[in-house]
């Protein structure tokens, strides 16, 4: 938006009355503070990071303002970064699928409960979203770490050797903790869809001879599919850039994009490279989110009238 265009638009109009003219400015006065705040505090930093990503870095001389594309060629063509990006998106995909498999049925089960269980279970499911990620991840460290409950349990069952058993620094460990952190988003999202579903469609299918599982598969699930898909999008986008959980559970051994950005910035101090990784991550995120939501919208326009 530019105020120039508005000014010229206003001027072009044939003699606007004083009243309509002053009214026309109201939305700009109202949004002005927030707009300035965002343009300065969001626009500027991102722009500066974009510029930074083209600067040159030298381990002895530090950052110099010589423009180069080498940061991007490193990120885009180096096998090391390919591995990191692939691992990140693999973790995202698996986490998202697990969240669908766990979260969607759970949302339906809670939805079918009666008062007061319904609100209690919803509270337990959504509540963890408000508890610090560091705390929740710490819980998983205590559960799946070397001397954790899981290890003791497996030892007691004789499934793990005496040396114990740890999921720390493994992809499985990261995925489990990430699913725990993010699955409430799937429940909320499917819940929102379920609220629009007429549950008597399930009864209708039953009356037409469908078995309970067929009712779920053919009638209920397709109707909550938009919720499943939008929940998946949120979870996928969040996991792809998640930092805390992969950093604490995956550590240095299992680098993902977010942790490698952190390392470039705060250990290696190669800010331009870190900046270019961030820009690539941002662009990928935006492209995935945009194209996916456009696809979802088109897919459901005729039937459910929503994305």
């Amino acid at each position: 938006m530019s105020e120039m265009t508005l000014e010229s638009r206003m001027a072009g109009r044939s003699r606007p009355s004083v009243r309509s003219r002053s009214l026309a400015w109201i939305p700009f006065w109202l949004t002005g503070p927030a707009a300035v705040f965002f343009l300065v505090l969001l626009g500027m930093p991102l722009l500066m990071t974009l510029v930074l990503s083209f600067y040159t870095f030298d381990y002895t001389a530090g950052i110099s303002e010589t423009l180069t594309l080498s940061n991007y060629t490193d990120v885009l063509f180096d096998g090391y970064f390919h591995e990191i990006f692939l691992r990140t998106y693999e973790i995202s995909l698996i986490t998202t699928l697990c969240c669908v498999v766990l979260g969607a049925p759970e949302a339906y089960i809670i939805y079918r409960m009666r008062r007061p269980w319904r609100s209690i279970c919803l509270l337990i499911t959504l509540g963890p979203l408000l508890i610090s990620v560091v705390v929740r991840t710490l819980g998983w460290v205590l559960l799946i770490g070397g001397n954790g409950l899981l290890s003791q349990f497996m030892q007691a069952l004789g499934l793990a050797g005496t040396r114990g058993f740890s999921l720390m620094y493994t992809q499985t460990g990261v995925v489990i903790a990430m699913v725990h952190v993010l699955v409430p988003f799937m429940v909320i999202s499917v819940w929102a869809s379920l609220r629009k579903v007429d549950l008597s469609t399930g009864d209708a299918a039953l009356s037409l001879g469908a078995k309970p599982f067929t009712v779920l598969r053919r009638v209920i699930f397709p109707q909550v599919l938009p919720g499943v898909l939008s929940g998946s999008l949120i979870i996928f986008a969040l996991t792809a850039s998640y930092f805390a959980t992969p950093s604490i559970i995956g550590g240095r051994r299992l680098k993902v994009v977010a942790t490698s950005v952190y390392d470039e910035y705060l250990s290696t101090m190669n800010w331009p490279l870190g900046a270019s990784i961030s820009i690539v991550l941002l662009v990928l995120n935006v492209v995935i989110v945009m194209s996916y939501s456009r696809w979802v919208e088109r897919r459901f326009r005729r039937t459910l009238g929503e994305g």
Partner: peptide
């Protein structure tokens, strides 16, 4: 059904 319960999809 009262709501007709047609399958919207």
């Amino acid at each position: 059904f009262q709501s007709y319960a047609l399958f919207p999809h």
